[in-house]
């Protein structure tokens, strides 16, 4: 018999924060995944909101392309405020 589907679980610890990946679990359907996520991952009031998503529905970047994808951002120093020297008098801009 086929194994139950794998769901990834995301929890918002409190309002004002993003949902954060906390782990995964197996469930046959989304409702069961949601209920079980509550029982498995929030036994100590770890959250106020839960998302579950079938693991196979996630599209992810390829770690082998990490450098091609993310290194180019490294030398765009002009995106950061520290790139722009200011006169002492207006320091607090």
């Amino acid at each position: 018999m086929a194994e139950m589907k794998l769901y990834e679980v995301f929890i918002r610890a409190k309002s004002g924060l993003n949902h954060r990946h906390v782990g995964s679990l197996h469930a046959s359907d989304a409702q069961m995944a949601l209920l079980n996520a509550r029982d498995v991952y929030t036994r100590r009031k770890e959250g106020v909101s839960i998302w579950v998503i079938e693991a196979e529905k996630i599209t992810a970047s390829n770690p082998e392309q990490e450098h091609e994808w993310f290194d180019p951002a490294e030398d765009k120093v002009y995106r950061y405020p520290t790139f722009y020297p200011l006169d002492k008098e207006v320091e607090n801009m």
Binding site: H26, A27, D39
Partner: peptide
């Protein structure tokens, strides 16, 4: 019957 449900029943 399986781990997830074991935890849930206990709750």
């Amino acid at each position: 019957p399986y781990l997830e449900e074991d935890v849930a029943l206990t709750n």
